[in-house]
Amino acid sequence: MTRLRWNILIVLTLAVGLVWIWVNRLPVDRAQTVDLRPAPAVGHPAPDFTLTTAGGEPFNLADLRGIPVVLNFWATWCPPCRAELPELEAASNRFAGQVAIVGVNQAEAPAAVQAFATQLGLTFAIPLDQDAAVSQRYFVRSLPTTFFIDRDGVIQQLQVGPVTEATLTQLLKTIYP
């Protein structure tokens, strides 16, 4: 191919390329691009649920709209969960009033969960998913699993497996500040 034809090809590619990019640009207002159907996937609104906490109080996820939420699924029999719970407690204290830490316990007796929480000094909300219905709705296949939900209730990150202080700091950046 001659030099001229190459130049024409490059300029044409650039011109058509810029038009296609411009035509497909996204609106700056994120609300226009969020898929409105709740689903346990990044980019979707987090499915709402109502449970009772280990302290006997009603808990509704939608009530937390307006502040970022770290939604963790755990159980007392799960060693990685036990390892990460102190990190979540530390974050709960560090970001008190700015980020909500929620630890959904999966299908365990309320008394056992309450005793375990007292033993570890956990102060964040622990809703009890006694029939594992919320876990199923969130497609939780292994524990721990953690969803990072932004102020608008949209899931921004999903972590399967434990978080450490470093990875928690990293993941929190996606929803806070």
């Binding site: 990019i21 497909n24 640009r25 996204l26 609106p27 700056v28 898929d35 980019g43 921004q156 996606t174």
Partner: peptide, 14 residues
């Protein structure tokens, strides 16, 4: 692909 605003530059370009 599903739109992802966090993966944009210069005011909305993917």
């Amino acid at each position: 692909r599903a739109p992802e605003v966090s993966a944009t530059i210069l005011g909305g370009l993917r």
